[in-house]
């Protein structure tokens, strides 16, 4: 009895509080940029796909809802042949983003992903890839890595000396 009255009183006090409920969807909520919503694959500053198909996001994913296959272009640049996220399993934990060594995979503030058919929640690379670098504008993995790709030979990455000549005996 006493507890019910106390509850009623508490609720009554809420009348004088600031209103939190908004008239969604007419009114849009403001979502912080670090919100963990719909996952995207970003591009590096040169506009090329950032994902190098390292499989780390897939390994980190607790419900195992990321699957991909690595492939290479003719110059040795590695990228995913396919990249699939089953959002009907995703728990939006953000572990994939945390695991990603290239800033390719990022969670965005978009949460409006409702679907009537579960299979519509299966996103392929075409659905995931966006046109910009997302939250991390400057980073370009292949400029840092030692692997040669088209347009970047050995010794041309950041902090690299030119390739040595194994035939030279000069000190």
């Amino acid at each position: 009895m006493w507890s019910s009255l106390k509850t009623l009183w508490t609720i009554f006090l809420h009348i004088f509080r600031r209103r939190e409920t908004i008239q969604y969807p007419e009114q849009r909520p403001s979502i912080p940029p670090r919100w963990r919503g719909r996952i995207v694959l970003t591009r590096d500053p040169d506009g090329a796909e950032r994902c190098v198909a390292c499989y780390l996001c897939a390994a980190a994913c607790p419900p195992d809802c990321i699957s991909l296959q690595a492939t290479e272009d003719e110059h040795g640049r590695r990228y995913p042949a396919f990249f699939r996220i089953n959002f009907s399993r995703c728990i939006f934990c953000g572990y994939c983003e945390e695991a990603c060594p290239t800033y390719a995979i990022q969670l965005t503030p978009d949460f409006e992903m409702g679907e009537y058919q579960r299979h519509n929640l299966v996103y392929e690379k075409e659905d995931l890839l966006i046109n910009g670098p997302g939250k991390y504008p400057g980073y370009n993995f292949y400029r840092v890595a030692g692997l040669a790709i088209g347009g970047k030979g050995k010794g041309e990455a950041e902090n690299e000396a030119p390739p040595t000549d194994p035939r030279s005996l000069m000190p």
Partner: peptide, 15 residues
């Protein structure tokens, strides 16, 4: 134990 993609590798065929 770290095998990945269990819930995504067949999802394009059957979710």
């Amino acid at each position: 134990p770290r095998y990945s993609g269990r819930t995504a590798m067949h999802a394009q065929v059957d979710v």
